[in-house]
Amino acid sequence: MLRADGLRHAFGHVMALDDISFSLAPGRTLVIFGPNGAGKTTLLKVLAGLIRPQAGCATVAGGRGAIGWIGHQSHLYGHLTVTENLLFWAALYDVPAERRRARAAEVMRRLAIADQADRRVWALSRGLAQRAAIAKALMHDPQVLLLDEPFTGLDLAAAGEVRALLAQLRGAGRVVVLATHNIDEGIELATDVAFQRRGRFVHFAPRGAHESAEIAEAYRRAVGAGGAGGTAGG
């Protein structure tokens, strides 16, 4: 469903992706951890088709229409309401016109923002805007979700709800690739774990029966103490 073969990409002398290969079948969730500048965002952008890699290729079954993307920003227009934003993006993803309103209502309910439907996005708090951004990414029921720091700005309760939603999606056979700055947040969702450093996967393996604490310890050993705090970003 999602495949990366020998991805390489550099920004000047800085290697952002260095020979990254992996494939994910339906129902898998890959969580990528890495320090600042490790190349996690570049990898997600290559998978999303935003950056053409200098070598290698990434393929997603179903093409761009099958991808749900949550980047650092919400991609929402501040002067449109939450519903108007969702309907706009649904139209671009060819959600049938007669189903758009019902779909928007459903994703807003799942993300507990139904009461914000008619508010303009600029008036939302950071956490509500992040939920609206996730709603936007789910409007077309994507087969592959690419999430870059999805828990940023969410309080503990909201982060828990998003984690539960992602677990549901995984159960429904969706592929999820998640890069998060907090090793404690994404780990419980993972079926596969990667540690990225200076563009390379220094570790990539199924999570198996490993406990979160073991993985956190392995991460600290793999990337070194400097990049392995609980809030390692990048």
Binding site: I67, Q73, H75, G78, K136
Partner: peptide, 17 residues
């Protein structure tokens, strides 16, 4: 300029249009 707000341009470029 409209598309710079919340990096909406990035969203447009990821979309299948």
């Amino acid at each position: 300029q409209l598309e710079l707000e919340n990096e909406a341009l990035e969203g447009l470029l990821v979309s299948p249009i």
